[in-house]
């Protein structure tokens, strides 16, 4: 396929990547993103090497300043001696499969400070992303990056889920009632561990904070994977204001998770979500294959056909 790294096996790439070769890291991420056998092999090789990195998800509406905030946050971390990495997810065009991945424009400060940034396209919403992102996080964790930040646009269930599968989930909103309502609709309220009111130098910032508080009062915060009432932080990412506060709150959240059982619960949830995504993917593939083999259906209702094929798939044993 392509170029210098292609000749190496996943294991060789991983050894080089863990030795600090950035191109090998990038190559592993490419293979994970493509899926298939190589991706499975990398998952196998990295799974036991992970668990160190604090995984932070950052999501919010388009235009909320997520990238600028992610840049400011990771720049601060890098300057403080940490080794942050970012996986920035942007949508693929549903028509052509292509994508314009523009997050690096706003993350230039971070890249100059040495942060490893990888842009990732959704490549269709068919669950590929839900497999690729955990795989990429695993590679970066195994290569010693900490924290690993996943940044996604908070529209679309898959994007929200991907960011939500983190130890600490940050939801970014901007001043203006509309944004908070939008966040509520997109289901972002339920997944947030903390909220950022970004662009806090604009009029309406305190209103946004109050709106969020009101909505949180009305939202039942429960369930095994999220337990605490989210903190609200105000930032003006373009000026770097409030970013230190945000980092402190993120670190506190992590510390609380580590001290208690929170982290284990979180990660069990995350693993379950990944298994679920993988299962959906495998069953989807099997369904497609069974349907293709069945050919045109005559003399059966759709329900009967589906049940018959499901029985065949489920009886088929090991799916690989």
């Amino acid at each position: 396929m392509h170029r210098a790294t292609e000749g190496r096996t996943p294991a060789e790439l991983l050894a080089a990547a863990r030795g600090g070769e950035r191109r090998a890291i990038a190559r592993l991420l490419t293979l994970v993103e493509r899926g298939g056998g190589a991706a499975d092999a990398i998952t196998g090789a990295t799974h036991r090497l992970t668990g160190t990195a604090h995984v932070v998800g950052i999501t919010g509406a388009p235009g909320s300043g997520k990238s600028t905030l992610t840049s400011a946050l990771t720049t601060l971390l890098a300057e403080g001696g940490r080794r942050p990495a970012v996986v920035a997810v942007d949508p693929s065009s549903p028509l052509t499969g292509g994508a314009i991945l523009g997050d690096r424009v706003r993350m230039e400060a971070a890249t100059v400070a040495g942060v490893f940034v990888r842009s990732m396209a959704t490549r269709g919403h068919g669950g590929g992303l839900a497999l690729a992102v955990p795989g990429a996080v695993r590679v970066l964790d195994a290569c010693g990056f900490d924290p690993v930040v996943i940044e996604t646009v908070g529209v679309g269930q898959v994007e929200v889920d991907v960011a939500a599968a983190a130890d600490t989930v940050v939801v970014v909103v901007t001043p203006g009632w509309g944004d908070a309502v939008q966040a509520n609709k997109a289901g972002l309220l339920e997944v947030a561990d903390l909220f950022v009111v970004n662009k806090a130098d604009r009029p309406g910032a305190s209103d946004a904070r109050r709106d969020l508080d009101l909505m949180l009062d009305l939202t039942e915060v429960s369930g095994a994977c999220s337990a605490r009432r989210p903190t609200i932080v105000e930032t003006t990412a373009t000026k770097g204001e409030g970013v230190e506060d945000l980092l402190a709150v993120i670190n506190t959240h992590h510390a609380v998770l580590v001290e208690g059982t929170g982290l284990e619960v979180r990660r069990a949830c995350r693993l379950a979500a990944e298994v679920r995504a993988r299962l959906d993917h495998l069953l989807g593939e099997a369904a497609g294959q069974a349907l293709a083999e069945a050919g045109p259906v005559v003399g059966e209702t759709p329900v009967e056909t589906a049940r018959r094929l499901a029985g065949r798939i489920l009886g088929a044993g090991d799916t690989r």
Partner: peptide, 10 residues
């Protein structure tokens, strides 16, 4: 005054 990074709209 600070510097400015554009809102990249491609």
């Amino acid at each position: 005054f600070g510097t400015y990074v554009e809102t990249a709209v491609v």
